[in-house]
Write a protein that binds this DNA or RNA. Structure first.
Lengths: 124, 124
DNA sequence: ACACATATGCTACACATGTAACACGAGTCA
DNA sequence: TGACTCGTGTTACATGTGTAGCATATGTGT
């Protein structure tokens, strides 16, 4: 499972709040913030679909994008990788640290907690 | 301040334990682990020096490398960046989370704690 | 003086990512 | 039907990083 880059994560964050969205809709949200042209947004979306970070469907004749993996699932991978490579901490992680993240609702936090502390097989 | 990549971090970790070291000495430690050729190690070291992640000196006619920034300083930047971009947590961070890291001695952990919780000006 | 090991300078190439333009087809409106 | 807009396919180019080779200088032992 390829980890999302910083830009890809920005797009995922939007789609986790509201999906599916079209390239145009995503651009309207992410463009100003990241200072991207529409082309840039489209290229990034396209690559994300190639990497199976996003799934595409057609709604009303327009392509729309949906995250393949849930926020908690994706973040657990990113967080685990970070702790492993940077801080050399394996196994269960101190998930209380993430409780203050505005990214996560209580439910999402609990799921993240579960994912970060379960055994290291995550490919389902 | 450019953040170190994963490979660069691997080299820094060695040099934080013992520095200065020559390219050959670093290769002996990092080569087997990362499965790198000597050339690869050298290229990476060279780029790290370019980016001022490492300082170079000449000892006994051989170039040796030393980290420019301390472990706690560097890690605080990496950790802060991670929490900000991934989890959108700014300001003081829950440093207790890192207490279990094998990377950090008690002293280093305290310094990291201090760096992560002080105001956001870190360029000294 | 010569051979050999080692250190260093320089170059190379592939892939990921950031960032974007151009061209073409389909719908829309005057 | 011609001009426009919008969605999409395709291509492009720079920079960073992974990964490495070749050539040359220099020290060292015989």
């Amino acid at each position: 499972m390829t980890q999302p880059s910083k830009s890809e994560l920005a797009i995922l964050k939007i789609l986790w709040i509201e999906a599916p969205l079209s390239a145009r809709e995503i651009q309207e949200k992410v463009g100003p913030q990241l200072d991207w042209s529409f082309s840039t947004t489209r290229t990034t979306l396209s690559r994300m679909a190639d990497k199976s970070l996003l799934r595409t469907d057609t709604k009303h004749g327009v392509r729309v994008y949906t995250p393949v993996d849930s926020k908690a699932h994706t973040l657990s991978g990113v967080v685990r990788e970070f702790f492993r490579t940077v801080l050399e901490m394996q196994g269960p992680l101190p998930t209380a640290a993430f409780h203050d993240s505005k990214m996560l609702s209580e439910d999402e936090w609990m799921e993240l907690d579960r994912l970060l502390n379960e055994s290291d097989d995550d490919d389902a």
